[in-house]
């Protein structure tokens, strides 16, 4: 019975969200607020049961001295909440500093080694060799160079530079067009999912109980 109630509640909330297509209304705002609240509650629950308990609480209760190093992240985490006590609010910055430094360290290497270097490397192509056909290589070279010229603002975009920069705009437009096409596909997919839920899943599950 709870399954039946669940699918009908889902159907009602889906229709509440769809009602925005007509105009803004209290049903839409109720469903939107509920979604935000449920998401936050879910996140807190999932982090507690999947990270805090198995990676922190369970090891500390099982073998405190062997896992004493876990107290460092625990204290850093608790220290974040000192920002709510005005007199010692500055202490929260210490935890933030560690957190930010850790992720800056990870990100710097990740972005440079894993993104900038390999992708720039693959953009520097032999005009007639490599993985692609000479035509692909030519398009890639013209595209990259013309877009770079378009974003080079130290020279006035006139005469030859202006022509190349206009070619760059065409490449950018093609890129935006592809991105837009994919975005439409993504949004339509979500609509398909909801329609499928309303007209197939709800009907199938309801018919099981009739």
């Amino acid at each position: 019975m709870s399954e039946l109630l669940g699918v009908w509640l889902g159907a009602f909330l889906t229709l509440c969200i769809f009602s925005f297509l007509y105009k803004d209304n209290p049903f839409f705002r109720f469903a939107e607020s509920l979604f935000a609240g449920v998401s936050l509650g879910y996140y807190i629950g999932i982090v507690s049961t999947n990270t805090l308990v198995p990676n922190m609480i369970r090891p500390l209760t099982a073998d405190f001295s062997g896992n004493a190093h876990l107290l460092i992240p625990l204290l850093l985490g608790l220290n974040l909440y000192t920002r709510y006590i005005p007199r010692i609010a500055w202490m929260a910055r210490l935890s933030l500093a560690v957190y930010i430094a850790y992720y800056v360290g990870i990100f710097m290497v990740q972005k440079l080694q894993g993104e900038v270097v390999p992708q720039v490397g693959k953009t520097i192509l032999h005009p007639i060799g490599g993985n692609f056909t000479p035509v692909d290589n030519l398009i890639m070279m013209v595209g990259v160079l013309s877009v770079l010229i378009y974003f080079y603002f130290s020279i006035e975009h006139k005469r030859a530079v202006g022509v190349v920069s206009r070619v760059g705009i065409w490449f950018l437009m093609l890129g935006f067009g592809a991105a837009f096409g994919y975005t439409v596909m993504g949004r339509i997919s979500l609509l398909i999912g909801r329609m499928n839920y309303l007209f197939i899943d709800v009907v199938q599950i309801t018919s099981q109980y009739l």
């Binding site: 990870i106 990740q110 894993g114 993504g186």
Partner: peptide
């Protein structure tokens, strides 16, 4: 891709949403 493949060399294949695909 930019962390695990780059740093550990593990082959990576991705299925992504259309919005992210480009």
């Amino acid at each position: 891709a930019n962390l695990v493949n780059a740093q550990f060399g593990t082959p990576v294949a991705v299925g992504c949403t259309a919005v992210s695909a480009p």
